[in-house]
Amino acid sequence: MTDIKTYLREWAMPHVLCPGCAHGIVLRSFLEAVDQLQLEQDKVAMVAGIGCSSRLAGYADFCTLHGTHGRAPAFATGLKLARPELDVVVVTGDGDGLAIGGNHLIHAARRNIDITVMLLNNSIYGMTGGQAAPTTPQGAVASTTPSGNTEASFDACALLQGAGASFVARVLAANPIEMTKVMADAITHPGFSFIEVVSDCPEYFGRYNKAGGGAEMLVSLTSRDVAVAGPLAAKRFVNHVPSSEPPPGMDTGVLQREVRPIFSGIRGGDTDES
């Protein structure tokens, strides 16, 4: 097993994220997946948008592109079409990927371009100071919804399934082992793969909604975890509220997996060398 720091820009650490923010756990799980798959470090491209989640690209020692707000899937599409041999991974957030960048995300899914999108959902805009996101639950407090959010929120996985993503999964940042496994599956999946990682924002969401610090938010995630696939499902023995229904849309595991033709742009046939 390689030291995971091989894939880290150590000189850039510690990273800018707040104490208790689980985004760093997600980066680590991703690096573990890259290591498990033994991907060539020079052939991995990480493409990010804007926001806390997107800052992760700066710390991963691959070819990294920190683009514009919401547009990462579009940058990644051009990159992948021009260099199909690269493993292109988009790291985005709930605001980045579902609000300003929602259009790019669903079209990348529809095309079935062979990239992996990891959407880190912390239910709020962290980088800009705690404003309501398309994933902020109804009733939750954000700096722009001081009396509680009145808008409905997106179910990212359902949205992406509707858009035709050929691989859709949800994992919890509190479950790094499952997260790594699903990420490895997503990277190797032929076609567009989407992972919603349920993460946390203790600094804003936690503080505004009295949900505790990073540790409390993280462990409380597991009590909402209903695994639908994978060997770990049977192993969960503790449930915070065993008798109540899990919140809707919180099913975890691989929710969609199909193989359909991969989009590679309009190009000539395979080069005929003869």
Binding site: E216, V219, T222, L232, K235, R236, F237, H240
Partner: peptide, 18 residues
């Protein structure tokens, strides 16, 4: 809680001191 400790494949059991 653990798949196999020796191989470090341990599932987080969901302990919640809160």
């Amino acid at each position: 809680a653990c798949d196999d400790r020796r191989n470090w494949t341990t599932a987080y059991p969901g302990i919640d001191p809160e």
